[in-house]
Design a protein around this nucleic acid. Sequence first.
DNA 1: TAGATTGTTAATCGATTAACAATC
DNA 2: TAGATTGTTAATCGATTAACAATC
Lengths: 214, 214
Amino acid sequence: MIECKEGAYASRATIARLPMYLRYLKEKEAAGEENVSSTLMAEDMRLNAVQVRKDLALVSSVSGRPKLGFKIKELIFGIENFLGFNNTNDALLAGVGGLGSTLLSYEGFKKYGLNIVAAFDVNPRLIGSKINNIPVLGVNSMGALAQKLNVKMGIITVPKEHAQEIADLMVQSGIKAIWNFAPTHLSLPAEIVLKNEDLAASLAVLSQHIAKRN
Amino acid sequence: MIECKEGAYASRATIARLPMYLRYLKEKEAAGEENVSSTLMAEDMRLNAVQVRKDLALVSSVSGRPKLGFKIKELIFGIENFLGFNNTNDALLAGVGGLGSTLLSYEGFKKYGLNIVAAFDVNPRLIGSKINNIPVLGVNSMGALAQKLNVKMGIITVPKEHAQEIADLMVQSGIKAIWNFAPTHLSLPAEIVLKNEDLAASLAVLSQHIAKRN
DNA sequence: TAGATTGTTAATCGATTAACAATC
DNA sequence: TAGATTGTTAATCGATTAACAATC
């Protein structure tokens, strides 16, 4: 499924860096540049040049040329293709509060291949409305909709008190991967992929850095 | 500054896990439990038990007892103390749009030691108002305020087109650590700590997981 | 050609995990 | 005591970086 060079495979760390490369390359492209060297990319993004080259080698069949570097357009095509940003990923979102509606309104996701097909909430005032053209439905219709549309990804933005029950409901509905924005621990079957968007963890790393400096 | 056992130091990975432990332990405490074993913690959080024990050993001077495990209250105290959640970190935020105002309204941050003292925007309608009791000011007053209050952390939630100029302004204002929510690459002096809250990267990792399954 | 850059191999670094004696 | 659990040492795993020949 994933196009990758014979034998080799892209590590989690590499995959996480690819969107950064993509953004960087698109900026360069917009600025009218045609080629870029791994050396320059590394310098601008504070990475190691060999790491950049290794990542690029895994992802695209494009090879760079000594002295010139890589063709920006080819790299962009290769990375987008690898990440599957062409075939968008359908997802549903539960919890249309502050963060939830911000995510629903965020157009940027489409660029990264995420397509939120429906949102769910318990508030009767919200149910039946649309945000950014995405319908808000009652949670009890989640199962039917997820199965009908064969959605595999769920985004949780409900208050943390309800995160576990929503997660359970998602699993029952056939969701295979959960992106959890609620600041709480979720217990899930081992086969479900869970990604915690943990602001507390990021903050902890950042404040430790500052503390160490002083 | 950072209390840590002689010689040893907590790695970035460990620090990022600590808030998760903290949440887990507080849930246990709220449920009336007094002790918890590293084995159970690991099982519930899908981690390795040895890893949990190593992390806890680095962070707190509490030692567990065979057969009983660790005292939950002592662990909570130890972790909070280590992370410095007692002495809150002041921060300023730039960009009072959807995400920005969501973050300003998010009470949860205080628990994790983050204290947003002021927000900045260019929209005259917002300037002078307050969100969650935090004043919204014009960007041109950032420098004076940051220096007066000696703020060291900045949060960027402006549209990506303006992220670089706001980052530059923050650096000029004496900010030492930047938490960037704008989906763009920032060029900063090497001594500035930068943490990108990169939703695209998280999404990429998640969708690769799903793609691989199929 | 001379010099910059690529791509690969080997070394290093850091974090996780396995094994196990010590402890309550 | 027997059994569960801790804490440490050593092995493994994975990712990053250094070194360098090949290439344009």
